[in-house]
């Protein structure tokens, strides 16, 4: 079986398991909504304020929810020592990373997509066409978090800090991506609100493009690093 086939096999396994239990996506979505709820008591997020802090609030919620879930990436493989089984199999270690990263990517993206409608609803963001531009930001943002998160999740199972480990490492590392996720989202919200009041709209503004480039670069760099370094983490 080739590299791609093995990656897909493991990915399918993880997606099937999640489809059955829904034990990662469901809590994540709820958690995102709860965080948004809490934030709402700090600032009322509707209207003009939305473009100022909305993006930050949204991505804070995504990241914190994501971090809790990412720990499970390999923690779930400790049951019955299935991680050993995966390490014993004749697959490249990097294929294991890739499949786990992709499943995390799917979960994170799913959470984002499920959380967005409630977000728009509670904070009065009219779902106008420019909002579609949010998609590339969400996708790339999820890709960045999945890359960094998966790499460090493999370490978190061997740390006394356990769930506390991931936030400690991922948050500072994610800053470049976070800045562009928030920046890009802000651009999109801005365009959306302009559209809503009939103003001139710029589809791919310079700002948005720069942020997307940053996210793309970040995702590529971290995936490349992870593919190379992963084997050093899973070795006993």
């Amino acid at each position: 079986m080739n590299y791609v086939g093995q990656t897909i096999t493991i990915l399918r396994k993880d997606l099937s398991l999640e489809w059955r239990s829904k034990e990662r996506i469901t809590p994540m979505v709820l958690f995102v909504l709860l965080i948004l709820l809490v934030f709402n008591f700090s600032f009322e997020l509707g209207g003009a304020v939305l473009s100022e802090i909305g993006p930050g609030v949204l991505w804070s919620a995504f990241i914190f929810a994501g971090l809790l879930s990412l720990h499970r990436t390999f923690a779930s493989e400790r049951q019955n020592e299935t991680l050993d089984a995966l390490l014993l199999a004749p697959i490249d270690r990097s294929a294991l990373y890739l499949s786990k990263m992709l499943s995390n990517f799917v979960f994170l993206l799913a959470v984002q997509l499920f959380s967005l409608p409630p977000f728009c609803f509670f904070f009065n963001l009219s779902p106008e066409p420019p909002l579609l531009l949010l998609l590339p930001v969400l996708v790339l943002g999820a890709a960045c978090l999945a890359a960094v998160g998966t790499l460090f999740a493999a370490m978190s199972i061997h740390s006394r800090l356990r769930e506390q480990f991931l936030p400690l490492l991922v948050l500072p590392m994610m800053v470049p991506a976070l800045i562009s996720c928030i920046g890009g989202t802000a651009e999109v919200f801005d365009q959306t609100q302009r559209f809503a009041i009939g103003d001139q709209v710029e589809i791919f503004s310079d700002g948005l493009v720069t942020h997307l480039q940053m996210l793309g670069t970040y995702a590529m760099v971290f995936n490349a690093l992870a593919l190379m370094l992963f084997e050093y983490i899973v070795e006993e």
Partner: peptide
Amino acid sequence: RFAAVIGVVAFVNVPLVYYSVNLW
């Protein structure tokens, strides 16, 4: 080994941090 991996990733991240913070 873990420390070494972090040591590599952290330094590669530094220019990214610098660039994006400047952007911001």
